[in-house]
Write a protein that binds this DNA or RNA. Structure first.
Lengths: 135, 135
DNA sequence: CTTCTTGCAAATCATTTGCAGGGCG
DNA sequence: CGCCCTGCAAATGATTTGCAAGAAG
Protein backbone atom coordinates (compact mmCIF):
# COMPACT_ATOMS: atom_id res chain seq x y z
CA UNK A 1 0.00 0.00 0.00
CA UNK A 2 2.79 2.36 -0.87
CA UNK A 3 0.48 4.88 -2.46
CA UNK A 4 -1.85 4.90 0.50
CA UNK A 5 1.06 5.88 2.69
CA UNK A 6 2.25 8.57 0.32
CA UNK A 7 -1.20 10.08 0.41
CA UNK A 8 -1.49 9.90 4.16
CA UNK A 9 1.87 11.55 4.56
CA UNK A 10 0.59 14.30 2.35
CA UNK A 11 -2.38 14.61 4.67
CA UNK A 12 -4.89 13.20 2.23
CA UNK A 13 -7.35 10.42 2.75
CA UNK A 14 -6.49 7.42 0.63
CA UNK A 15 -9.18 7.09 -1.99
CA UNK A 16 -9.38 5.21 -5.26
CA UNK A 17 -9.26 8.23 -7.58
CA UNK A 18 -6.28 9.68 -5.74
CA UNK A 19 -4.39 6.42 -5.80
CA UNK A 20 -5.04 5.91 -9.48
CA UNK A 21 -3.97 9.42 -10.38
CA UNK A 22 -0.85 9.21 -8.27
CA UNK A 23 -0.01 5.86 -9.81
CA UNK A 24 -0.44 7.26 -13.28
CA UNK A 25 1.82 10.24 -12.56
CA UNK A 26 4.48 7.92 -11.21
CA UNK A 27 4.38 5.49 -14.06
CA UNK A 28 3.73 7.53 -17.14
CA UNK A 29 6.53 7.76 -19.61
CA UNK A 30 5.59 11.33 -20.39
CA UNK A 31 6.28 13.13 -17.13
CA UNK A 32 4.20 16.19 -17.97
CA UNK A 33 0.44 15.88 -18.16
CA UNK A 34 -2.47 18.28 -18.23
CA UNK A 35 -5.69 17.57 -16.36
CA UNK A 36 -7.30 16.72 -19.65
CA UNK A 37 -4.48 14.30 -20.46
CA UNK A 38 -5.00 12.50 -17.17
CA UNK A 39 -8.73 12.37 -17.80
CA UNK A 40 -8.34 10.82 -21.23
CA UNK A 41 -5.83 8.27 -20.07
CA UNK A 42 -8.17 7.25 -17.26
CA UNK A 43 -10.97 6.85 -19.77
CA UNK A 44 -8.78 4.70 -21.99
CA UNK A 45 -7.98 2.56 -18.95
CA UNK A 46 -11.68 2.05 -18.26
CA UNK A 47 -11.29 4.05 -15.07
CA UNK A 48 -14.31 6.15 -14.36
CA UNK A 49 -13.09 9.39 -12.81
CA UNK A 50 -14.79 12.72 -13.44
CA UNK A 51 -12.82 15.60 -14.84
CA UNK A 52 -13.76 17.73 -11.85
CA UNK A 53 -12.26 15.18 -9.53
CA UNK A 54 -9.06 15.17 -11.52
CA UNK A 55 -8.77 18.92 -11.22
CA UNK A 56 -9.50 18.73 -7.51
CA UNK A 57 -7.02 15.96 -6.89
CA UNK A 58 -4.27 17.59 -8.92
CA UNK A 59 -4.80 20.83 -7.04
CA UNK A 60 -4.62 19.00 -3.72
CA UNK A 61 -1.49 17.17 -4.80
CA UNK A 62 0.09 20.45 -5.74
CA UNK A 63 -0.89 22.04 -2.42
CA UNK A 64 0.66 19.17 -0.52
CA UNK A 65 3.84 19.28 -2.55
CA UNK A 66 3.43 15.94 -4.31
CA UNK A 67 3.43 17.50 -7.73
CA UNK A 68 4.35 20.73 -9.49
CA UNK A 69 2.16 22.81 -11.74
CA UNK A 70 3.59 24.65 -14.73
CA UNK A 71 1.97 27.06 -17.15
CA UNK A 72 3.40 26.40 -20.59
CA UNK A 73 1.81 28.88 -22.94
CA UNK A 74 -1.78 28.92 -21.74
CA UNK A 75 -2.33 25.42 -20.40
CA UNK A 76 -1.44 23.93 -17.03
CA UNK A 77 0.68 20.80 -16.91
CA UNK A 78 1.63 18.80 -13.88
CA UNK A 79 4.62 16.68 -13.05
CA UNK A 80 5.64 14.58 -10.10
CA UNK A 81 7.82 16.52 -7.66
CA UNK A 82 10.28 13.68 -7.35
CA UNK A 83 13.30 15.08 -9.09
CA UNK A 84 15.47 18.10 -8.42
CA UNK A 85 14.51 21.50 -9.67
CA UNK A 86 14.76 21.96 -13.38
CA UNK A 87 13.50 24.15 -16.18
CA UNK A 88 11.97 23.21 -19.50
CA UNK A 89 12.25 23.45 -23.26
CA UNK A 90 9.01 22.87 -25.09
CA UNK A 91 8.89 21.96 -28.76
CA UNK A 92 6.20 24.08 -30.36
CA UNK A 93 5.92 21.51 -33.13
CA UNK A 94 5.48 18.16 -31.41
CA UNK A 95 5.05 19.15 -27.79
CA UNK A 96 8.10 17.28 -26.60
CA UNK A 97 9.40 18.57 -23.30
CA UNK A 98 13.07 18.53 -22.42
CA UNK A 99 14.11 19.15 -18.84
CA UNK A 100 17.35 20.84 -17.96
CA UNK A 101 19.10 22.40 -15.04
CA UNK A 102 21.76 25.04 -15.09
CA UNK A 103 23.49 26.35 -12.03
CA UNK A 104 24.85 29.40 -13.75
CA UNK A 105 21.33 30.55 -14.59
CA UNK A 106 20.00 29.73 -11.15
CA UNK A 107 22.71 31.69 -9.44
CA UNK A 108 22.39 34.58 -11.81
CA UNK A 109 18.68 34.80 -11.06
CA UNK A 110 19.34 35.03 -7.36
CA UNK A 111 21.92 37.72 -7.74
CA UNK A 112 19.75 39.80 -10.04
CA UNK A 113 16.84 39.50 -7.68
CA UNK A 114 18.86 40.65 -4.70
CA UNK A 115 20.10 43.54 -6.79
CA UNK A 116 16.47 44.69 -6.90
CA UNK A 117 15.80 43.74 -3.28
CA UNK A 118 13.36 41.22 -4.65
CA UNK A 119 12.78 38.00 -2.73
CA UNK A 120 12.26 35.09 -5.13
CA UNK A 121 9.65 32.54 -4.12
CA UNK A 122 9.50 30.73 -7.38
CA UNK A 123 10.47 31.13 -10.99
CA UNK A 124 9.65 29.72 -14.35
CA UNK A 125 12.00 29.52 -17.26
CA UNK A 126 10.77 27.97 -20.43
CA UNK A 127 12.41 27.90 -23.85
CA UNK A 128 10.07 27.53 -26.80
CA UNK A 129 11.32 26.32 -30.14
CA UNK A 130 11.93 23.19 -32.17
CA UNK A 131 13.47 20.00 -30.93
CA UNK A 132 16.02 18.21 -33.04
CA UNK A 133 13.43 16.01 -34.72
CA UNK A 134 11.21 18.87 -35.80
CA UNK A 135 13.64 21.28 -37.43
CA UNK B 1 -1.03 61.76 -36.96
CA UNK B 2 1.88 59.81 -35.63
CA UNK B 3 -0.27 56.91 -34.49
CA UNK B 4 -1.96 56.66 -37.84
CA UNK B 5 1.41 56.19 -39.44
CA UNK B 6 2.52 53.63 -36.90
CA UNK B 7 -0.59 51.64 -37.64
CA UNK B 8 -0.17 51.89 -41.38
CA UNK B 9 3.41 50.78 -41.13
CA UNK B 10 2.15 47.78 -39.20
CA UNK B 11 -0.25 47.10 -42.05
CA UNK B 12 -3.36 48.06 -40.14
CA UNK B 13 -6.07 50.47 -41.14
CA UNK B 14 -6.07 53.50 -38.89
CA UNK B 15 -9.24 53.37 -36.83
CA UNK B 16 -10.33 55.07 -33.66
CA UNK B 17 -10.19 52.04 -31.35
CA UNK B 18 -6.73 51.10 -32.59
CA UNK B 19 -5.38 54.59 -32.18
CA UNK B 20 -6.77 54.89 -28.68
CA UNK B 21 -5.38 51.55 -27.58
CA UNK B 22 -1.99 52.29 -29.09
CA UNK B 23 -1.95 55.67 -27.40
CA UNK B 24 -2.80 54.13 -24.08
CA UNK B 25 -0.04 51.55 -24.37
CA UNK B 26 2.45 54.27 -25.19
CA UNK B 27 1.45 56.58 -22.41
CA UNK B 28 0.54 54.36 -19.51
CA UNK B 29 2.83 54.48 -16.55
CA UNK B 30 2.32 50.80 -15.97
CA UNK B 31 3.88 49.20 -19.05
CA UNK B 32 2.15 45.86 -18.62
CA UNK B 33 -1.59 45.61 -19.12
CA UNK B 34 -4.06 42.80 -19.59
CA UNK B 35 -6.95 43.07 -22.04
CA UNK B 36 -9.26 43.58 -19.10
CA UNK B 37 -7.03 46.38 -17.78
CA UNK B 38 -7.20 48.17 -21.11
CA UNK B 39 -10.94 47.72 -21.20
CA UNK B 40 -11.44 49.21 -17.76
CA UNK B 41 -9.16 52.14 -18.43
CA UNK B 42 -11.07 52.89 -21.61
CA UNK B 43 -14.31 52.80 -19.69
CA UNK B 44 -12.92 55.18 -17.10
CA UNK B 45 -11.90 57.50 -19.91
CA UNK B 46 -15.43 57.50 -21.30
CA UNK B 47 -14.17 55.65 -24.36
CA UNK B 48 -16.65 53.16 -25.62
CA UNK B 49 -14.69 50.17 -26.93
CA UNK B 50 -15.96 46.62 -26.66
CA UNK B 51 -13.86 44.02 -24.88
CA UNK B 52 -13.92 41.87 -28.00
CA UNK B 53 -12.40 44.69 -29.99
CA UNK B 54 -9.67 45.10 -27.43
CA UNK B 55 -8.78 41.45 -27.68
CA UNK B 56 -8.84 41.63 -31.46
CA UNK B 57 -6.71 44.74 -31.60
CA UNK B 58 -4.19 43.48 -29.09
CA UNK B 59 -3.88 40.25 -31.03
CA UNK B 60 -3.34 42.18 -34.25
CA UNK B 61 -0.78 44.42 -32.60
CA UNK B 62 1.05 41.37 -31.39
CA UNK B 63 0.96 39.77 -34.82
CA UNK B 64 2.39 42.89 -36.42
CA UNK B 65 5.10 43.18 -33.82
CA UNK B 66 3.91 46.37 -32.16
CA UNK B 67 3.49 44.72 -28.80
CA UNK B 68 4.54 41.60 -26.92
CA UNK B 69 2.30 39.16 -25.11
CA UNK B 70 3.39 37.46 -21.92
CA UNK B 71 1.71 34.79 -19.85
CA UNK B 72 2.29 35.58 -16.21
CA UNK B 73 0.60 32.88 -14.20
CA UNK B 74 -2.63 32.31 -16.09
CA UNK B 75 -3.40 35.71 -17.56
CA UNK B 76 -2.04 37.40 -20.64
CA UNK B 77 -0.42 40.80 -20.32
CA UNK B 78 0.79 43.00 -23.12
CA UNK B 79 3.54 45.56 -23.35
CA UNK B 80 4.76 47.86 -26.06
CA UNK B 81 7.63 46.33 -28.04
CA UNK B 82 9.67 49.48 -27.87
CA UNK B 83 12.50 48.45 -25.62
CA UNK B 84 15.15 45.78 -25.86
CA UNK B 85 14.49 42.23 -24.83
CA UNK B 86 14.10 41.74 -21.13
CA UNK B 87 12.66 39.33 -18.61
CA UNK B 88 10.40 39.98 -15.63
CA UNK B 89 10.01 39.73 -11.88
CA UNK B 90 6.43 39.81 -10.71
CA UNK B 91 5.50 40.63 -7.14
CA UNK B 92 2.88 38.12 -6.05
CA UNK B 93 1.73 40.58 -3.42
CA UNK B 94 1.14 43.86 -5.21
CA UNK B 95 1.55 42.89 -8.84
CA UNK B 96 4.48 45.19 -9.45
CA UNK B 97 6.55 44.15 -12.43
CA UNK B 98 10.28 44.73 -12.60
CA UNK B 99 12.03 44.32 -15.92
CA UNK B 100 15.58 43.12 -16.16
CA UNK B 101 18.05 41.86 -18.70
CA UNK B 102 21.00 39.62 -18.12
CA UNK B 103 23.46 38.61 -20.77
CA UNK B 104 24.87 35.74 -18.80
CA UNK B 105 21.46 34.10 -18.62
CA UNK B 106 20.69 34.79 -22.25
CA UNK B 107 23.93 33.23 -23.40
CA UNK B 108 23.57 30.29 -21.10
CA UNK B 109 20.14 29.57 -22.53
CA UNK B 110 21.50 29.48 -26.03
CA UNK B 111 24.31 27.17 -25.13
CA UNK B 112 22.07 24.79 -23.24
CA UNK B 113 19.64 24.69 -26.12
CA UNK B 114 22.31 23.88 -28.64
CA UNK B 115 23.53 21.17 -26.32
CA UNK B 116 20.16 19.50 -26.86
CA UNK B 117 20.06 20.40 -30.56
CA UNK B 118 17.07 22.54 -29.71
CA UNK B 119 16.41 25.67 -31.76
CA UNK B 120 15.05 28.44 -29.56
CA UNK B 121 12.35 30.61 -31.07
CA UNK B 122 11.35 32.35 -27.92
CA UNK B 123 11.66 32.05 -24.19
CA UNK B 124 10.03 33.28 -21.07
CA UNK B 125 11.73 33.77 -17.76
CA UNK B 126 9.74 35.10 -14.91
CA UNK B 127 10.70 35.34 -11.25
CA UNK B 128 7.81 35.33 -8.79
CA UNK B 129 8.21 36.65 -5.27
CA UNK B 130 7.99 39.79 -3.21
CA UNK B 131 9.26 43.19 -4.15
CA UNK B 132 11.10 45.28 -1.62
CA UNK B 133 7.94 47.05 -0.47
CA UNK B 134 5.99 43.89 0.19
CA UNK B 135 8.39 41.82 2.26
C1' DC C 1 -21.70 7.11 12.11
C1' DT C 2 -19.36 11.50 10.74
C1' DT C 3 -16.65 13.58 7.67
C1' DC C 4 -14.24 13.96 3.62
C1' DT C 5 -14.90 12.64 -1.48
C1' DT C 6 -16.85 12.01 -5.78
C1' DG C 7 -19.72 12.53 -10.03
C1' DC C 8 -22.53 15.31 -12.59
C1' DA C 9 -24.37 19.40 -14.00
C1' DA C 10 -24.39 24.16 -13.70
C1' DA C 11 -21.48 28.23 -13.01
C1' DT C 12 -17.25 30.99 -13.97
C1' DC C 13 -13.44 33.24 -16.36
C1' DA C 14 -10.79 34.57 -20.01
C1' DT C 15 -10.96 34.72 -24.69
C1' DT C 16 -13.09 33.96 -29.38
C1' DT C 17 -16.46 34.14 -32.97
C1' DG C 18 -20.84 35.22 -35.75
C1' DC C 19 -23.29 38.71 -37.57
C1' DA C 20 -25.44 43.10 -38.84
C1' DG C 21 -24.42 47.85 -38.91
C1' DG C 22 -20.52 51.50 -39.54
C1' DG C 23 -16.41 53.88 -40.99
C1' DC C 24 -11.93 54.24 -43.68
C1' DG C 25 -9.66 54.64 -48.11
C1' DC D 1 -19.04 52.29 -52.76
C1' DG D 2 -16.50 47.91 -51.17
C1' DC D 3 -14.22 45.89 -47.65
C1' DC D 4 -12.33 45.97 -43.32
C1' DC D 5 -13.70 47.06 -38.52
C1' DT D 6 -16.63 47.36 -34.48
C1' DG D 7 -20.10 46.32 -30.91
C1' DC D 8 -22.93 43.07 -28.90
C1' DA D 9 -24.34 38.75 -27.80
C1' DA D 10 -23.70 34.04 -28.08
C1' DA D 11 -20.10 30.35 -28.28
C1' DT D 12 -15.81 28.27 -26.43
C1' DG D 13 -12.38 25.96 -23.67
C1' DA D 14 -10.38 25.46 -19.31
C1' DT D 15 -11.25 25.18 -14.69
C1' DT D 16 -14.35 25.67 -10.52
C1' DT D 17 -18.28 25.01 -7.61
C1' DG D 18 -22.92 23.33 -5.62
C1' DC D 19 -25.09 19.47 -4.15
C1' DA D 20 -26.82 14.94 -3.13
C1' DA D 21 -25.12 10.28 -3.00
C1' DG D 22 -20.91 7.37 -1.64
C1' DA D 23 -16.70 5.72 0.54
C1' DA D 24 -12.97 6.00 4.39
C1' DG D 25 -11.62 5.81 9.24
Amino acid sequence: MKHTDELKQAGLKSTLPRIKILKLLESTRDRHLSAEDVYKIMLDNQENIGLATIYRVLTQFEASGLILRHHFGERSVFELADSDHHDHMVCVECGTIIEFHDDTIEKQQVSIASLHKFKIQDHSLCLYGKCKNCQ
